[in-house]
């Protein structure tokens, strides 16, 4: 279909070219999501599943688990971004934005829940109910980041963020004794299944 052989271009050829452009652009976006975003989502899904399952069955034995897994997750994310098939000019800023978001969440969690702060005097201690809400808070913070990220990068981040946020809130209100297991399965599971689905079917 070289221009020298087809000039003047027919309507049918022009339509076929436009359709091909749309198809290739959509396919490329999917391939990029499968190669760069999906492995990161799977990694964080595994981290969620391990950490929340541990919290369900042995809540007080491993206080270091979340910070340790967060460090593994952050290091893994940097590694995956380096090996990603697409290099984005602002990808370091995206990672930095997530770190800032987490730092913000951690600072406010400390300010709101620390039992020694003067304005907390006389207030009830850190109750199981509050622990559940704090867990929901930390589960939805990265999902909020995903939704924001999805507005600029891969759209599937928007849906994944909304889905996991809804699942977390359902668990908060309805999953009584198995709340953390619910978070492990619904949150971690959604991330893993979402990532595997994209990796398998969007390639």
């Amino acid at each position: 279909m070289d221009i020298e052989n087809t000039s003047p271009l027919s309507k049918e050829d022009a339509r076929a070219s436009l359709a091909e452009i749309d198809h290739i652009m959509a396919q490329t976006r999917k391939t990029i999501a499968a190669g760069s975003s999906a492995p990161i989502v799977i990694l964080w899904g595994v981290i969620w599943a391990i950490a929340y399952a541990r919290l369900q069955f042995s809540p007080h034995s491993t206080p270091w688990l979340w910070p340790a897994l967060d460090i593994v997750g952050i290091a893994g994310t940097f590694h995956l971004v380096r090996r990603s098939p697409v290099k984005r000019p602002k990808q370091r800023r995206v990672l930095l934005a997530f770190l800032i978001l987490f730092a913000y969440a951690i600072v406010w969690r400390a300010l709101l829940c620390h039992p020694d702060l003067p304005y907390k005097a006389g207030a009830p201690a850190f109750t199981p109910s509050m622990a559940r809400r704090i867990a929901a808070y930390f589960a939805t913070i990265p999902m909020f980041g995903y939704v924001m990220l999805g507005l600029w990068l891969d759209r599937f981040f928007i849906w994944l963020g909304i889905l996991v946020t809804i699942a977390t809130l359902i668990g908060l209100f309805f999953a009584q004794d198995y709340y953390y297991l619910w978070l492990a399965i619904s949150g971690g599971g959604s991330l893993i299944i979402g990532g595997v689905f994209i990796r398998k079917f969007w390639k």
Binding site: E20, I21, I24, M25, A26, Q27, T28, R29, T31, I32, G35, P85, V86, K87, R88, P89
Partner: peptide, 19 residues
Amino acid sequence: RIMSALMALQPRSQLDFRT
């Protein structure tokens, strides 16, 4: 097709040759 694929990226983003 090559240009369509590269246009799917945001400006200044780069795609790997093999991909």
